[in-house]
């Protein structure tokens, strides 16, 4: 394995005595699709929030692309190349789909107040590039036809796609997806899977929180399992889904189904 893109060391987070994360260490290699699974309340989203700077971890920290990540500075995480989506979709509801993606370009563009007022050639060129890139990304995730609709009027699946397009607009090296398949039907899930695989193929590393075991096992190169804020196991899907601790903690209720779901595709990566 090459030098990791992301290295989490001993990350801990308490919420008033409740230990949401206990000493979580894991590392993600460049170009991987890395799955993070675990029962509800296991600390997956908390881990995301620490990673993307929305929470300050109470212990440990992250190294990203060789340099430490500053805690609790979300905009800097984005600048460093970490983008995310949210479990409970957070779009700019009263902006159009296109404008949502354009906002994603903020961190990679520079025009300020003076440029905005004067609209000098450089600002105009930048603005045109922003719009062009937004259109490309909308096309890339497959919702180009909804570009001028308000974000809140998109279907649930399209909103998830729009969030991914917005995250991609920040030119991330690591894309963190928080339950992107939640609430999607089978067709939408299949399309999402193709999309995520495509994003990886384009060179973006993906960190995926997901409840859909089939999706995770089929798509991810490696999977980590969190339970009660602790890392239970981290390995390739084929190994993870046979691990007795995982079966007990998470898949326990229906080991057969989980086994079947991933078995055929476990070694895919």
């Amino acid at each position: 394995m090459s030098a990791p893109l992301l290295d989490a060391r001993g990350v801990a987070k308490d919420f008033g005595g409740v230990k949401a994360l206990k000493d979580v260490s894991l590392s993600i290699a460049p170009g991987e699709i890395y799955g993070l699974i675990g029962p509800n309340g296991a600390g997956k989203t908390t881990f995301f929030n620490c990673l993307t700077g929305l929470y300050a971890p109470d212990g440990g920290g992250f190294t990203f692309a060789g340099a430490p990540l500053k805690a609790s500075a979300p905009h800097q995480a984005a600048r460093r190349g970490i983008a995310r989506t949210f479990q409970n979709i957070r779009l700019f509801a009263h902006m159009t789909a296109r404008e949502n993606v354009m906002v994603g370009r903020h961190v990679r563009t520079r025009a300020g107040v003076i440029g905005a007022i004067l609209r000098d050639p450089r600002t105009r060129a930048e603005e045109a590039a922003i719009a062009r890139r937004a259109d490309e990304l909308l096309h890339y995730v497959g919702i180009a036809d909804r570009a001028h609709d308000l974000a809140k009027h998109l279907s649930y699946g399209d909103q998830r796609r729009l969030e991914i397009a917005r995250a991609l607009a920040t030119e991330p090296r690591l894309l963190c997806l928080d339950e992107p398949a939640a609430g999607m039907n089978a067709t939408e899930r299949a399309a999402l899977r193709t999309l995520i695989a495509g994003i990886r193929a384009d060179g973006v590393t993906v960190l995926l929180i997901e409840h859909d075991v089939k999706l995770v096992m089929g798509l991810c190169d490696r999977v980590a399992v969190l339970d009660y804020g602790q890392l239970v196991v981290e390995d390739v899907p084929a190994v993870v889904q046979r691990d007795p601790r995982v079966i007990e903690a998470y898949l326990g209720a229906a080991p057969d189904e989980a086994g079947q779901g991933g078995a055929g595709e476990g070694g895919h990566a």
């Binding site: 700077g53 929305l54 995310r84 957070r90 700019f92 404008e99 906002v103 995250a167």
Partner: peptide, 17 residues
Amino acid sequence: RAWVAIREDEVAAKACG
């Protein structure tokens, strides 16, 4: 756009950098 993004959802705006 950044202003409106903050108005609409500050957390998401931060996540957008």
